[in-house]
Amino acid sequence: MANLTLVQAINLALTQEMEADDRIVLLGEDIGLNGGVFRVTEGLQQRFGEDRVVDTPLAESGIMGSAIGLAMAGMRPIPEIQFEGFLGPAYDQLINHGARYRTRSRGAITVPLTVRVPVGGGIHAPELHSDSPEAIYAHHPGIKVVMPASPYDAKGLLISAIRDPDPVIYFEPKRIYRAFREEVPEDEYTIPLGKAKIVEEGSDLTIVTWGAPVLQCLEAMDKLPDDISVELIDLRTIYPYDMDCIEESVRKTGRCVVVHEAPKTSGFGAEIAAMVQERCFLHLEAPVQRVTGYDTIMPYYKLELDYLPEADRIAEGVMACAAY
């Protein structure tokens, strides 16, 4: 057991999986000697060699497309796209090929790859280094979408993603890369994809969130009057998502607020809101609320905290829902 940051937990998971499975190949920009721009792959090239930790040319489509080929031919590639804002060129490969091969080939060809991508805002980063595109990928059939919110979960979820027989996009919230430490077991363990976590139990209102905003929700909960008991759910996997967990919670509380960094319209909160009314209609005491980013371009960092769902705005949304 060690007290690790999210970065260290991911690094540990990669190390252990690479030790255990020599089909695993890491490929991406600056992931070798430099250890990745966030140092997530620090030391891995030195340990596993240049054939297994590969600094590729600067080409996201190339990284994703060749990772798909590697996976089709029996390897277990883990491509890294340096920032979510640079997924664009890789999108065609991932969506139009990676996510479709199993269906197209009636299961004859599979693409077991895990693409790692730093995601989200709040770190004073430049343009296109702060976006939250998870709903775009959740919308595409054939790809699983994961986003851990703690070091412990990061390790267990990444190992599950790597061992999954299908393509997984594994978003790493940069805002919590080094924000806090947590006890992470040395032994390998998995956290099943598609299972949410109840971070705090409560009885009056359910908050559903994922990624870095889990922290902002906890902060918001501290600001609430003591007589409001909030249940906080960290979705962990955005697709396939744990609707059973949400349903059980909302049937109990009757109120639901969804929090995410991505824009409101067509954000994943919209899907959850729709499913909550589908499954919990007669249990609802208030309309499902969303506290999210705005329907705008993610602003540059001078205004990013006005855009992101920070604790005050979350608390306000929770109060509006609780008072309904």
Partner: peptide, 18 residues
């Protein structure tokens, strides 16, 4: 600006209550 963006700007809210 579409109406929804104006609403978000003027309230600085994305939740629809209030």
């Amino acid at each position: 600006l579409p109406e929804e963006i104006i609403r978000q700007r003027d309230t600085m809210h994305t939740h629809s209550l209030g």
